[in-house]
C-alpha cells in the first residue's frame, strides 16, 4: 500500500477546473518533484493534499486513512503531513524556538519542557540551534525557511509537502535550504515538492511529475523525464524546443 494515494482528484475554482483528475501514488521514503508551468495546478495539488483546499471529486488517502473535510479528520491528516510554504509564514510575534514549540503544545498538548527540548533538537537539525531566541525578522530568508522546516518536523510528520520553498529566497540563500531538504531525503523522509530547481530535482528526487493544464502529463524517474521527454509540452518546458 502506498503512503499517499491520490486518485482521480478534481478541483474547480468556479468554472475554472484547475485539477482534472490527478493520479499519483507515493511510496514511503520517495522524494517527488512536481514541475510545470505557472498555473498548471501544482500548488493547488499540494494544498489539496494538506486539506487547505477541499477537493470536488476523487480521493486522497494518507497512510491508509481517507482525507475528509471535517476538523477531526483534517487534524489527523495534518499531524501526518507537514507543509512548508514559499513565504515561510513564521509567526512574527514568536521567537524561532516558540514558533517550533507552539503547535506541539497547542495541538499535541506536549508539556512545555518536552516541546522545548524537541524545538531545540529540530532547530539543531536545520543548523539553527543558536537562533532559538531570535525573532523571525531578525533572521535571513534562508534561516526563516529553515525554522519553518524545523517547525513542521517537530510535529513528526511522515511526509512533507514543500511548495516552491526556495522561490522567495535570494540566490545565495537557496543552497542552505536545499541542503536541509537533501539531508531529510537521505534520512528517508517522504517528500513532495514543487520546485523550479531542476538540478536539485535530478540529483535528489526518485520521481518527477510534470503537470500540464491540471493533469499529470508525464511521470517517471528524473533520468527519463529530463533526458527523454516524450511530449512536446515537456520538451518546451525544459527548453528543448
Amino acid at each position: 500500500m502506498s503512503l499517499i494515494e491520490i486518485t482521480e482528484v478534481k478541483k474547480r475554482f468556479g468554472d475554472n477546473e484547475v485539477l482534472k483528475g490527478i493520479n499519483i501514488d507515493v511510496e514511503p521514503g520517495e522524494v517527488i518533484a512536481i514541475i510545470g508551468k505557472s498555473g498548471s495546478g501544482k500548488s493547488t495539488l499540494l494544498r489539496c493534499i494538506n486539506g487547505l483546499e477541499t477537493i470536488d471529486d476523487g480521493s486522497i488517502s494518507v497512510a491508509g486513512a481517507q482525507l475528509l473535510p471535517d476538523e477531526i479528520h483534517l487534524k489527523a491528516l495534518r499531524l501526518k503531513v507537514g507543509m512548508i510554504f514559499q513565504q515561510f509564514n513564521l509567526f512574527p510575534h514568536l521567537t524561532a524556538g516558540r514558533n517550533v514549540m507552539l503547535s506541539q503544545m497547542v495541538v499535541k498538548k506536549t508539556p512545555r519542557g518536552e516541546a522545548e527540548a524537541m524545538a531545540k533538537k529540530m532547530l539543531e537539525r536545520v543548523g539553527l540551534g543558536h537562533k532559538f531566541d531570535a525573532y523571525p525578522d531578525e533572521l535571513s530568508g534562508g534561516q526563516q525557511q529553515r525554522v519553518a522546516i524545523a517547525r513542521a518536523l517537530a510535529m513528526q510528520p511522515i511526509a512533507l509537502l514543500c511548495d516552491e520553498i526556495t522561490s522567495a529566497l535570494d540566490p545565495e540563500l537557496v543552497n542552505e535550504v536545499l541542503a536541509v531538504v537533501k539531508e531529510l531525503a537521505s534520512e528517508g523522509m517522504t517528500l513532495l515538492m514543487v520546485t523550479h530547481e531542476m538540478r536539485f530535482a535530478r540529483d535528489v528526487c526518485s520521481r518527477v511529475v510534470f503537470m500540464h493544464q491540471g493533469r499529470v502529463h508525464e511521470i517517471g524517474p528524473p533520468g527519463e523525464v529530463f533526458a527523454e521527454p516524450r511530449t512536446p509540452e515537456l520538451k518546451q518546458f525544459l527548453g528543448m524546443l
Partner: peptide, 9 residues
C-alpha cells in the same frame, strides 16, 4: 494556513 497546516483548529 500555517496554523492550519500545523494541525491547529
Amino acid at each position: 494556513e500555517a496554523g492550519a497546516s500545523l494541525g491547529m483548529s
